[in-house]
C-alpha cells in the first residue's frame, strides 16, 4: 500500500521537483511506452503519464519508489488507450518480426514471441517488468498495485507458464545463445 506523502509544495519547489522527476525518468517511461505501443502512441502515453504526475505530484512517492509509481501510471494509461488496444495486433506482429539484440536465430525468436504472446496480458506484463524494465518483486508490486509477495507468486506462475509454452514449442534453452547471456 502506498502511503500518500502530503508535502506542501510551493509553486517553485513543485516545478523543480517535477522537473527532476521528469528528467530522471523520461527515458525509462518512454522505453516502457515504446515497448508496449506504437511509436506515435508512445508519445501520447509518455505525455499523459507525466501529466498525471504533474497534477498529482503530492501523491508521487520519493526516492526509489518514484519510478515504479510512474510505471504503474503508464500501465493504466496504456490500458485505457483506445488506440493502443485497437493496434495491439500490429504490435504483436512487430514482436514476432523484430530482430533480437542477441541475434537469436529467426526461427527461435519467432517461436519465443509466439509463446510469449500466448500468455495472458497479466502474465506478459509481469514478465516484461522483469525482462524489460528490470524490476524486482517489490517494485512490480508497486506497479501492479499488489504486495511484493503477490508479485512474486504472479511472476513464478508466469515464468512457469512461459517455460511450458516454450517446451511445447520445442524451444530449447540449452541450444540457444541466450544461455550465455543468462
Amino acid at each position: 500500500m502506498t502511503m500518500r506523502v502530503r508535502i506542501p509544495q510551493t509553486a517553485v519547489a513543485r516545478r523543480e521537483r517535477f522537473e527532476r522527476i521528469y528528467r530522471s525518468n523520461y527515458e525509462a517511461i518512454l522505453g516502457y511506452a515504446r515497448r508496449r505501443t506504437e511509436p506515435d502512441e508512445a508519445a501520447d502515453v509518455l505525455a499523459e503519464t507525466f501529466l498525471v504526475a504533474w497534477r498529482r505530484l503530492e501523491a508521487v512517492p520519493e526516492g526509489d519508489e518514484t519510478r515504479p509509481w510512474l510505471y504503474g501510471t503508464a500501465r493504466r494509461v496504456v490500458a485505457n488507450h483506445e488506440r493502443a488496444r485497437r493496434r495491439r495486433g500490429r504490435l504483436d506482429a512487430r514482436l514476432r518480426e523484430a530482430p533480437g539484440a542477441a541475434a537469436a536465430p529467426a526461427g527461435d525468436r519467432a517461436a519465443l514471441a509466439a509463446a510469449f504472446l500466448r500468455l495472458t496480458e497479466q502474465e506478459r506484463e509481469v514478465l516484461s517488468l522483469v525482462g524489460w524494465e528490470g524490476l524486482d518483486a517489490k517494485q512490480i508490486g508497486a506497479v501492479l498495485g499488489c504486495s511484493a509477495n503477490a508479485a512474486r507468486i504472479r511472476l513464478h506462475r508466469a515464468r512457469r507458464r512461459l517455460a511450458g509454452e516454450l517446451e511445447r514449442a520445442g524451444w530449447s534453452m540449452n541450444s540457444h545463445p541466450l544461455e550465455e547471456i543468462a
Partner: peptide, 9 residues
Amino acid sequence: DAAVAELAL
C-alpha cells in the same frame, strides 16, 4: 527473464 528481455522492441 533473459529470453523475455530478448523480445524488447
